[in-house]
Amino acid sequence: MRRKLRVAAYAMCIRDEKILLARWLDDEGRPEWTLPGGGMEHGEHPYDTVLREVEEETGYLVEITGLLGVDSISRTFTRGFGRRTDHHGVRLVYEARVIAGELRPEIGGSTDLAAWHPLTEVPALNRVGLVDVGLRLWQERPVTGRVTAPADE
């Protein structure tokens, strides 16, 4: 089985009781909302990754105001030709605030829309689990930088 490690950085941008999210299409073509951010380039620092990714996906320039935590996930995927991959994702979640720019969708990238959503409406959105992880990190601010139990436990 092929093993793959992916390190990525994401931003929790909240203002006026709204969260900034980006929309991408999953493997089946279904749209899902996620935190703006993405994978690190070789040699890139995660801090620079999150700044670059937020601008690419939303049009905004952000200022990082803190590191909320780190999330780690492991999943097994079956890809083309039935090849199985053991995927390990390490996701750094930063708190950020918008300092400049205009909201716009990403052009030719992995997302197709960016939007502010009221925090009260997030549970009804079709979203990836990272959104819930980010919200818990933002709300709880665990000293370990880690949330371990599901939000409903």
Rank of each mutant, 00 (worst) to 15 (best):
V50C: 02
G38L: 06
W33Q: 00
A124H: 15
G43Q: 13
L5E: 09
K4R: 14
E55C: 08
H88G: 00
R75E: 15
T65H: 00
R52G: 10
G37C: 02
C13A: 08
E41D: 12
P142V: 05
L61F: 14
E102T: 12
T111A: 09
Y47R: 05
T148Q: 12
M1Y: 07
E56C: 06
V143Q: 15
T76R: 13
E102L: 09
P46H: 03
W24T: 07
D16V: 02
P142S: 07
T120E: 15
L92D: 00
G89F: 11
L92V: 13
R2T: 13
W33I: 03
V128Q: 09
Y60N: 04
D152Y: 11
V7A: 04
E55N: 15
V54W: 04
T76N: 08
F81W: 14
L130V: 01
R75S: 12
E102K: 10
D132I: 08
K4N: 08
H117S: 00
R146S: 10
R2H: 15
T58V: 05
A100T: 11
S74L: 13
A22T: 15
L61W: 13
E55T: 09
T148I: 14
H42D: 08
F77I: 14
T148N: 12
T148Y: 13
E55W: 08
R6S: 07
A22R: 04
T144Q: 14
W138E: 06
R97F: 06
L130H: 03
L5C: 06
A115T: 08
T65K: 04
R136G: 01
L103D: 01
T120G: 04
L119I: 04
I19G: 01
A151D: 06
A114Q: 07
E153A: 13
E95V: 01
P46M: 04
D71L: 11
A151W: 14
L35G: 01
Y47H: 10
L61N: 12
Q139N: 15
G69K: 00
E106S: 11
D112A: 03
V54A: 05
E95D: 08
R84C: 03
G29D: 09
A115M: 06
A149W: 13
D112S: 06
T148E: 13
V90Y: 12
E32W: 07
A9H: 03
Y60T: 10
E57M: 12
K18M: 12
K4L: 15
G66N: 01
T85I: 15
R127E: 00
D16N: 13
T34W: 05
T144G: 11
P31K: 06
G39D: 02
W33P: 00
P36W: 09
E153R: 09
H45P: 02
E53R: 12
G129D: 08
P31V: 00
E32M: 14
L5S: 04
T111N: 07
P150H: 06
P150S: 11
E44P: 05
E57L: 13
R104N: 11
G109S: 07
R79I: 09
R84D: 09
V131K: 03
V90A: 10
